[in-house]
Design a protein around this nucleic acid. Sequence first.
DNA 1: CATGAATGAGCCTTCATTCAT
DNA 2: AATGAATGAAGGCTCATTCAT
Lengths: 218, 218, 218, 218
Amino acid sequence: MSNSLTKKQKLEKSQRIAQVTLKLFRENSFDEITMDRIAKIAGIAKGTLFNYYKTKENIFMNLLLEGYQVFFTQLDNQIMNFEKLSLADFKNLMLKVTSELIEDHPVLVRLNALRGPILERKANKKQTIDGRQKLYKIREQLSKDIAYRVTELTPETINHLFITQGAIISGLINLSGLDRFNHEKLPIKMFDFEVNIEKESKEILGFYLDGLFQEKES
Amino acid sequence: MSNSLTKKQKLEKSQRIAQVTLKLFRENSFDEITMDRIAKIAGIAKGTLFNYYKTKENIFMNLLLEGYQVFFTQLDNQIMNFEKLSLADFKNLMLKVTSELIEDHPVLVRLNALRGPILERKANKKQTIDGRQKLYKIREQLSKDIAYRVTELTPETINHLFITQGAIISGLINLSGLDRFNHEKLPIKMFDFEVNIEKESKEILGFYLDGLFQEKES
Amino acid sequence: MSNSLTKKQKLEKSQRIAQVTLKLFRENSFDEITMDRIAKIAGIAKGTLFNYYKTKENIFMNLLLEGYQVFFTQLDNQIMNFEKLSLADFKNLMLKVTSELIEDHPVLVRLNALRGPILERKANKKQTIDGRQKLYKIREQLSKDIAYRVTELTPETINHLFITQGAIISGLINLSGLDRFNHEKLPIKMFDFEVNIEKESKEILGFYLDGLFQEKES
Amino acid sequence: MSNSLTKKQKLEKSQRIAQVTLKLFRENSFDEITMDRIAKIAGIAKGTLFNYYKTKENIFMNLLLEGYQVFFTQLDNQIMNFEKLSLADFKNLMLKVTSELIEDHPVLVRLNALRGPILERKANKKQTIDGRQKLYKIREQLSKDIAYRVTELTPETINHLFITQGAIISGLINLSGLDRFNHEKLPIKMFDFEVNIEKESKEILGFYLDGLFQEKES
DNA sequence: CATGAATGAGCCTTCATTCAT
DNA sequence: AATGAATGAAGGCTCATTCAT
């Protein structure tokens, strides 16, 4: 009774852990976030962490999957409001999504960039496959819903576009050295540091879409 | 002279260390590469490592700077053969460079992605600035030489393009989980794993250039 | 409760570590005492050490502060038994304290000598200041209690005297090469080795007090 | 011929090493001075150091012995100018020497403080004894010359006084945390940091001498 | 289920000393 | 006698993970 938690209670605790980690990740790198800090801030014992997540990497993997699920679900809901979308509409949508990712969910992009080089390294094969498949499923559903409204594009193409979008944003974020998150500014003015991630991302993605659409036409 | 290594010999040994590290980096992440492993494979004592490079990060930073220097110098030499380059020529050039980076020097791109979040963390401000400036200089010279031949573009734009190119490739490589470099193939077929980095990069960059050129014209 | 050590238990373990370190310090210099040795002798893992003390220096700093606290508190208690103390009484007191420090707590003096050149080096500014202030507070209280009973002297003068006393003893202990604490006796008879630290210290301090008192009178 | 140095040349080189070390020791602790730095500043190879001094500790021990030799010799010369010295003269002399040690040769005192805890630890028994004996001889000669002029005191007493003097100064220097040599000042005002080493030393020694002389009279 | 003390492998780095040339 | 590259033992410290209670 007392020592057996309801599913709801368990979920709440695991989410608390996740939220704390997420918050920390906004201004810290993976290495800078220790299980100690997470436990302390979450107000639970370090050992308890491992009852909810087998490894540190699992916390982040979960964050990634849950995050994208929420994000894509919300996006899906918005799309449901439309009957049809022209290519121009779709382009605007993708650019808007780009802005949102960068402004409101850069953490999601950074988590995604963590997946291959870090998260999956310490996960076993099954976990890795499960994680990827889940992420894929989420994106797949969204892609289908969009393709249903943008008749010129297939779900595969749209799915592909989301991946490309992620790669572009991630590449730019990483390159910009996360300087927005760093405290000390370097007394130097070079292009690297002036990368306006949002503007760049939208430009690249925009031209990419233009090219893609043009190709389809011909 | 006797026991004193000539500059050439010293360079050779420091390059041996660098080569060992580079080789390890092809299939391992920064964290997985320890000074111990480097020393062992290079066939020298761990302490000797520090006679050539003051920190682990220095080895990688050097690898990055030297690598780009060589790569861009070769590129520069190729360009010197031309009198003038049309925009179409330039586009082909950028696409060819993209292929080369991905096929022959993916390590360079990954090193560059390491710079901000890892290499510069443990370097002091001066080293960081020096490193960045050196890298910048290299790219700057190349950009000027190209701009001289592609009259429609400014050096700044070209420099910008190289950075964008790096970001795109880096984003895709990272996203693809480096699977092509891993030993074990995952028994799974999903889009992520089928990302043909080279094809994708060229497509994105190609369309980006098209859009950019078109914009200039109007 | 179960696996959680009570405050008392934690204190006991941290004191065990401290005691081991103290014991080692009796016959070894700071550099000769490694965290490895401390852990081994304390019968715990090296990592455990760092759960109780963040740095090696912290162990010693703690030893110093705790040691003086205990010593001065005991001294304070003795003083509380008196209503008033004449200058002669006070002189006797200081000489007695000198004997006690040398006979029973030479380690305390040596720790104090370690503070500036070693312990505070690796401590951050806050720690350094805190440590010094704590030590100062301890001595200050004692000085006040004494000054209350020795009407001819101010607390400042007395505080000053304790510091001078420490310097004299420390100087002599260090000079005598700690030989009395070393295992091997040197087969040599020279003045240095015959320094009777206790006798010397008391003589110097005694005369110093005499001079000081005489000065006050005139 | 070319590969065999004259005694003079050898002496010069060993003195150069010594001078460099001495200079470094003025603003650095023993640990902060590496053989590397010494060699570099002296303009010789690191290996060469070991042709002149078998160990790092030997350099410092030599510095100590040579330093005192010079200092005491100069002092001896000054004394030779006098026929007789009264006790008051002698006291003034000792106080003047104290000032000189603190103002001009604090390094000497610090070296002396290094002898027991550091220098002799890594030296073998013979070296230790030799070093001590040499130092003793130097001081002994001086003591005799003084005793000859201060008829009230024996050479032993005077020798003893020099040791006491060294202990007092050393104790105070160490206690003051070498703050005069530190770059960063602590934003704190406590007695410890206000120790005026020279004033304190002279006061303690002065009173000590007063007491001693008074004792002799009675 | 929660706890948090204990673990120990592993990391980077330092530096006096050696020795082949 | 001089060189300086090579050595390697040693050091302090980190942190994800385990497990007895």
